[in-house]
Design a protein around this nucleic acid. Sequence first.
DNA 1: GCGACAG
DNA 2: ATCTTGTCGC
Length: 254
Amino acid sequence: MSVLPQEELIKKWEREQDALKQQLVEGDTEEWQQTSGFAGLERVGGVDLSFIKGDEVNACAQLVVLSYPQLELLYEDSQMVTLTTPYIAGFLAFRETPFLLEALQRLKTKQPSLMPQVVFVDGNGLFHYREFGVACHLGVLSGLPCVGVAKNLLQMQGVLRSEEHLSQIRALKKGGDSFPLTVACGRVLGKALRSSDKSIKPIYVSVGHRISLDTAVQLTHACCRYRVPEPIRQADMRSREYLRKHYQCLDTQK
DNA sequence: GCGACAG
DNA sequence: ATCTTGTCGC
Protein backbone atom coordinates (compact mmCIF):
# COMPACT_ATOMS: atom_id res chain seq x y z
CA MET A 1 0.00 0.00 0.00
CA SER A 2 1.44 3.37 -0.99
CA VAL A 3 0.88 6.25 1.39
CA LEU A 4 0.60 9.74 -0.02
CA PRO A 5 1.73 12.78 1.93
CA GLN A 6 -1.28 14.59 3.33
CA GLU A 7 -0.89 17.49 0.92
CA GLU A 8 -1.11 15.12 -2.04
CA LEU A 9 -4.00 13.25 -0.47
CA ILE A 10 -5.95 16.48 -0.14
CA LYS A 11 -5.32 17.40 -3.76
CA LYS A 12 -6.54 13.98 -4.82
CA TRP A 13 -9.65 14.34 -2.66
CA GLU A 14 -10.40 17.79 -4.08
CA ARG A 15 -10.28 16.36 -7.61
CA GLU A 16 -12.61 13.56 -6.53
CA GLN A 17 -15.08 16.04 -5.04
CA ASP A 18 -15.01 18.08 -8.25
CA ALA A 19 -15.69 14.98 -10.33
CA LEU A 20 -18.57 13.70 -8.18
CA LYS A 21 -20.04 17.20 -8.06
CA GLN A 22 -20.85 16.90 -11.77
CA GLN A 23 -23.43 14.25 -10.89
CA LEU A 24 -25.13 16.26 -8.15
CA VAL A 25 -28.84 17.05 -8.59
CA GLU A 26 -29.94 20.09 -6.60
CA GLY A 27 -33.70 20.25 -7.07
CA ASP A 28 -36.75 18.17 -6.13
CA THR A 29 -36.99 15.00 -8.19
CA GLU A 30 -39.53 12.95 -6.24
CA GLU A 31 -43.34 12.97 -6.36
CA TRP A 32 -43.66 13.29 -2.58
CA GLN A 33 -41.53 16.44 -2.61
CA GLN A 34 -44.10 18.28 -4.76
CA THR A 35 -47.08 17.78 -2.44
CA SER A 36 -48.03 19.80 0.63
CA GLY A 37 -47.82 17.15 3.36
CA PHE A 38 -45.19 15.02 1.60
CA ALA A 39 -47.91 12.55 0.54
CA GLY A 40 -46.26 9.30 -0.55
CA LEU A 41 -43.32 9.68 1.81
CA GLU A 42 -43.24 6.62 4.08
CA ARG A 43 -39.60 5.95 5.00
CA VAL A 44 -36.89 8.35 6.16
CA GLY A 45 -33.33 7.21 6.88
CA GLY A 46 -30.61 8.45 9.20
CA VAL A 47 -26.90 7.61 9.36
CA ASP A 48 -24.12 8.27 11.85
CA LEU A 49 -20.81 6.99 13.19
CA SER A 50 -19.93 6.81 16.89
CA PHE A 51 -16.47 6.36 18.39
CA ILE A 52 -14.93 4.93 21.51
CA LYS A 53 -13.15 7.60 23.48
CA GLY A 54 -9.50 7.85 22.61
CA ASP A 55 -9.87 5.50 19.64
CA GLU A 56 -9.53 7.14 16.25
CA VAL A 57 -10.03 4.08 14.07
CA ASN A 58 -12.72 1.84 15.52
CA ALA A 59 -16.28 3.07 15.17
CA CYS A 60 -19.87 1.89 15.00
CA ALA A 61 -21.57 2.71 11.70
CA GLN A 62 -25.32 3.05 12.08
CA LEU A 63 -28.27 3.14 9.70
CA VAL A 64 -31.85 3.55 10.84
CA VAL A 65 -35.06 3.73 8.82
CA LEU A 66 -38.10 5.38 10.41
CA SER A 67 -41.71 5.55 9.26
CA TYR A 68 -43.05 8.89 8.12
CA PRO A 69 -44.83 10.77 9.56
CA GLN A 70 -44.92 8.61 12.71
CA LEU A 71 -41.11 8.46 12.99
CA GLU A 72 -41.16 4.94 14.41
CA LEU A 73 -38.29 2.51 13.93
CA LEU A 74 -38.66 0.17 10.94
CA TYR A 75 -35.06 -1.01 10.58
CA GLU A 76 -31.67 -0.62 12.21
CA ASP A 77 -28.17 -1.82 11.48
CA SER A 78 -25.09 -1.42 13.69
CA GLN A 79 -21.72 -2.47 12.34
CA MET A 80 -18.24 -2.09 13.81
CA VAL A 81 -15.87 -0.68 11.21
CA THR A 82 -12.20 0.27 10.99
CA LEU A 83 -11.60 3.76 9.63
CA THR A 84 -8.74 4.22 7.23
CA THR A 85 -8.51 8.00 6.90
CA PRO A 86 -8.16 10.88 9.36
CA TYR A 87 -10.79 13.53 9.96
CA ILE A 88 -9.93 16.68 8.04
CA ALA A 89 -12.46 19.50 7.95
CA GLY A 90 -13.86 19.67 4.43
CA PHE A 91 -13.19 15.98 3.79
CA LEU A 92 -15.43 14.23 6.28
CA ALA A 93 -16.99 12.17 3.50
CA PHE A 94 -13.80 10.29 2.74
CA ARG A 95 -13.73 9.06 6.34
CA GLU A 96 -17.36 8.07 6.74
CA THR A 97 -19.09 7.51 3.40
CA PRO A 98 -17.66 4.07 2.53
CA PHE A 99 -19.22 2.56 5.67
CA LEU A 100 -22.55 4.31 5.19
CA LEU A 101 -22.73 2.94 1.65
CA GLU A 102 -22.00 -0.56 2.98
CA ALA A 103 -24.88 -0.22 5.43
CA LEU A 104 -27.22 0.81 2.61
CA GLN A 105 -25.99 -2.14 0.58
CA ARG A 106 -26.76 -4.56 3.43
CA LEU A 107 -30.26 -3.09 3.64
CA LYS A 108 -30.73 -3.53 -0.11
CA THR A 109 -29.77 -7.18 0.22
CA LYS A 110 -31.75 -8.01 3.35
CA GLN A 111 -34.82 -5.76 3.24
CA PRO A 112 -35.03 -3.91 -0.09
CA SER A 113 -38.62 -2.87 0.60
CA LEU A 114 -37.36 -0.77 3.54
CA MET A 115 -34.97 1.36 1.47
CA PRO A 116 -35.43 4.96 2.71
CA GLN A 117 -36.82 7.56 0.28
CA VAL A 118 -34.57 10.23 1.77
CA VAL A 119 -31.55 10.04 4.07
CA PHE A 120 -30.56 12.55 6.76
CA VAL A 121 -26.81 12.85 7.09
CA ASP A 122 -24.89 14.14 10.11
CA GLY A 123 -22.89 16.95 8.46
CA ASN A 124 -23.21 19.48 5.65
CA GLY A 125 -24.29 19.11 2.04
CA LEU A 126 -23.82 22.08 -0.29
CA PHE A 127 -22.95 24.25 2.70
CA HIS A 128 -19.30 23.37 2.35
CA TYR A 129 -16.01 24.98 1.29
CA ARG A 130 -16.27 23.47 -2.20
CA GLU A 131 -20.05 22.99 -2.16
CA PHE A 132 -19.74 19.23 -1.77
CA GLY A 133 -20.07 18.02 1.80
CA VAL A 134 -20.71 14.52 3.10
CA ALA A 135 -24.46 14.68 2.38
CA CYS A 136 -23.76 15.41 -1.31
CA HIS A 137 -21.10 12.70 -1.40
CA LEU A 138 -23.39 10.02 0.02
CA GLY A 139 -26.26 11.25 -2.15
CA VAL A 140 -24.35 10.98 -5.41
CA LEU A 141 -22.77 7.62 -4.60
CA SER A 142 -26.02 6.07 -3.34
CA GLY A 143 -28.35 7.82 -5.77
CA LEU A 144 -30.72 8.56 -2.88
CA PRO A 145 -32.16 11.97 -1.97
CA CYS A 146 -30.09 13.28 0.96
CA VAL A 147 -30.30 16.18 3.41
CA GLY A 148 -27.29 17.53 5.31
CA VAL A 149 -27.80 18.61 8.91
CA ALA A 150 -24.90 20.09 10.89
CA LYS A 151 -25.15 20.84 14.60
CA ASN A 152 -22.38 23.42 14.41
CA LEU A 153 -21.72 26.22 11.95
CA LEU A 154 -18.96 25.62 9.47
CA GLN A 155 -17.55 29.11 9.07
CA MET A 156 -16.93 30.21 5.49
CA GLN A 157 -16.30 33.40 3.62
CA GLY A 158 -19.49 35.40 4.08
CA VAL A 159 -20.89 33.18 6.86
CA LEU A 160 -19.21 33.79 10.20
CA ARG A 161 -20.18 33.27 13.81
CA SER A 162 -20.42 37.04 14.06
CA GLU A 163 -22.57 39.35 16.13
CA GLU A 164 -24.76 39.65 13.03
CA HIS A 165 -25.15 35.88 12.90
CA LEU A 166 -26.03 35.69 16.60
CA SER A 167 -28.56 38.46 16.05
CA GLN A 168 -30.17 36.49 13.22
CA ILE A 169 -30.37 33.49 15.55
CA ARG A 170 -32.09 35.58 18.22
CA ALA A 171 -34.64 36.63 15.60
CA LEU A 172 -35.80 33.00 15.14
CA LYS A 173 -38.90 33.06 17.29
CA LYS A 174 -40.46 29.64 16.85
CA GLY A 175 -39.85 26.15 15.51
CA GLY A 176 -39.69 26.24 11.72
CA ASP A 177 -38.23 29.75 11.53
CA SER A 178 -35.07 29.98 9.46
CA PHE A 179 -32.67 32.34 7.74
CA PRO A 180 -30.49 31.79 4.67
CA LEU A 181 -26.75 31.15 4.78
CA THR A 182 -25.40 33.28 1.96
CA VAL A 183 -21.74 32.92 1.04
CA ALA A 184 -19.55 35.69 -0.33
CA CYS A 185 -20.47 35.09 -3.97
CA GLY A 186 -24.13 35.63 -3.09
CA ARG A 187 -25.24 32.03 -3.35
CA VAL A 188 -27.55 30.64 -0.65
CA LEU A 189 -25.95 27.35 0.32
CA GLY A 190 -28.08 26.44 3.31
CA LYS A 191 -30.40 27.65 6.04
CA ALA A 192 -30.14 27.97 9.80
CA LEU A 193 -33.30 26.39 11.22
CA ARG A 194 -34.84 26.66 14.66
CA SER A 195 -35.95 23.05 14.73
CA SER A 196 -38.43 23.29 17.61
CA ASP A 197 -39.96 25.90 19.86
CA LYS A 198 -37.81 24.67 22.73
CA SER A 199 -34.38 24.69 21.12
CA ILE A 200 -32.57 28.01 20.91
CA LYS A 201 -29.45 26.85 19.10
CA PRO A 202 -30.28 26.30 15.42
CA ILE A 203 -29.28 23.43 13.15
CA TYR A 204 -27.74 24.05 9.74
CA VAL A 205 -29.62 22.43 6.86
CA SER A 206 -28.34 22.10 3.31
CA VAL A 207 -29.08 20.16 0.15
CA GLY A 208 -27.38 16.81 -0.21
CA HIS A 209 -28.85 15.40 -3.43
CA ARG A 210 -32.18 15.28 -5.30
CA ILE A 211 -34.02 17.78 -3.08
CA SER A 212 -34.43 21.57 -3.03
CA LEU A 213 -33.30 23.67 -0.09
CA ASP A 214 -36.82 24.75 0.86
CA THR A 215 -38.11 21.17 0.76
CA ALA A 216 -35.11 20.02 2.79
CA VAL A 217 -35.80 22.64 5.47
CA GLN A 218 -39.53 21.85 5.63
CA LEU A 219 -38.91 18.12 5.80
CA THR A 220 -36.22 18.52 8.45
CA HIS A 221 -38.59 20.54 10.60
CA ALA A 222 -41.26 17.87 10.12
CA CYS A 223 -38.82 15.23 11.41
CA CYS A 224 -37.78 17.10 14.56
CA ARG A 225 -39.20 15.96 17.87
CA TYR A 226 -36.12 17.43 19.53
CA ARG A 227 -33.33 19.67 18.26
CA VAL A 228 -31.75 17.06 16.00
CA PRO A 229 -33.98 15.39 13.38
CA GLU A 230 -35.22 12.04 14.66
CA PRO A 231 -33.46 9.83 12.05
CA ILE A 232 -30.04 11.27 12.96
CA ARG A 233 -30.84 11.33 16.65
CA GLN A 234 -31.87 7.66 16.61
CA ALA A 235 -28.79 6.68 14.60
CA ASP A 236 -26.60 8.53 17.10
CA MET A 237 -28.26 7.07 20.19
CA ARG A 238 -28.31 3.52 18.88
CA SER A 239 -24.69 3.50 17.71
CA ARG A 240 -23.58 4.83 21.10
CA GLU A 241 -25.68 2.22 22.85
CA TYR A 242 -24.03 -0.46 20.72
CA LEU A 243 -20.57 0.72 21.81
CA ARG A 244 -21.62 0.83 25.47
CA LYS A 245 -22.95 -2.67 25.29
CA HIS A 246 -20.03 -4.25 23.42
CA TYR A 247 -16.98 -2.18 24.38
CA GLN A 248 -17.58 -0.68 27.80
CA CYS A 249 -15.69 -3.54 29.47
CA LEU A 250 -12.54 -2.88 27.44
CA ASP A 251 -12.75 0.79 28.24
CA THR A 252 -13.03 0.17 31.97
CA GLN A 253 -9.81 -1.87 32.05
CA LYS A 254 -7.63 0.87 30.51
C1' DG B 1 2.38 33.91 12.38
C1' DC B 2 -2.59 33.38 13.99
C1' DG B 3 -7.01 31.58 14.07
C1' DA B 4 -10.42 28.31 12.34
C1' DC B 5 -11.50 23.58 11.78
C1' DA B 6 -18.95 19.66 9.81
C1' DG B 7 -17.77 14.79 12.48
C1' DA C 1 -16.21 12.58 17.62
C1' DT C 2 -15.34 12.23 23.08
C1' DC C 3 -14.67 13.76 28.23
C1' DT C 4 -19.62 13.47 32.14
C1' DT C 5 -23.89 13.79 37.03
C1' DG C 6 -26.68 16.24 38.63
C1' DT C 7 -29.84 19.70 38.23
C1' DC C 8 -33.28 23.14 36.99
C1' DG C 9 -37.65 23.67 34.58
C1' DC C 10 -41.93 22.36 31.90
